[in-house]
């Protein structure tokens, strides 16, 4: 099963080709395929004008060590910001997503890629991601259910939910048990 994209709570066709940059490769010389592409931040920085002059939509992918504010001036021009999770347990991408949504005010597609599986979806979506490229070999259709693991929440996050103490008070229950 190849990687499948979840967007808008549905499994959809991914129209973007991903350009990867092998270790040590020159960002200026990476081949760009026709059609919409997602490129690494280094390629974007090296070939910004060229990418913007194409007719196709363009997205940028960040690694966990990239700094979101690098893209602050360009966010309106990007169709996708993708954040790479090298490992399930590497949680830097959650704080990166927070910065895009809450600090930089980015409103476009924020896509989690890499080691992305269903049991992360709830936290990813609360942190501001709205698209998820489910790792190869995992069932994206089945994963949809995990977006709704919890309806009750305690804290504010980048999904716009308020802390419990700012929301309407819950129904009181009789003491007991």
């Amino acid at each position: 099963m190849r990687s499948q994209l979840i967007r808008g709570h549905r499994v959809v066709e991914d129209e973007f080709a991903v350009v990867s940059l092998p270790e040590g490769a020159d960002p200026a010389s990476a081949p760009l395929p026709e059609g919409p592409v997602i490129v690494p931040l280094a390629v974007w920085s090296a070939r910004r004008e060229e990418l913007l002059s194409r007719e196709h939509a363009v997205g940028v992918q960040l690694s966990p060590t990239d700094v979101p504010s690098t893209l602050a001036e360009d966010l309106a021009r990007l169709a996708v910001v993708a954040v790479h999770f090298p490992k399930f347990a590497d949680g830097r991408g959650y704080s990166i997503a927070y910065q895009f949504r809450r600090r930089l005010g980015y409103r476009g597609e924020l896509r989690a890629v890499g080691d992305v599986q269903r049991d992360q979806l709830y936290y990813l979506s609360r942190s501001g991601f709205d698209a998820f490229l489910i790792k190869e070999g995992h069932d994206a259709q089945a994963a949809l259910a995990s977006l709704h693991d919890f309806n009750a929440t305690y804290q504010a996050a980048a999904d716009g939910r308020l802390p419990r103490f700012r929301a309407a008070p819950p129904a009181r229950e009789a003491a007991g048990g």
């Binding site: 399930f88 347990a89 590497d90 949680g91 959650y94 704080s95 927070y98 709830y122 936290y123 990813l124 609360r126 942190s127 919890f150 929440t153 305690y154 804290q155 996050a157 980048a158 999904d159």
Partner: peptide, 8 residues
């Protein structure tokens, strides 16, 4: 509890 940003 279940803070989405700080679980990993």
């Amino acid at each position: 509890t279940l803070h989405p940003e700080f679980a990993y």
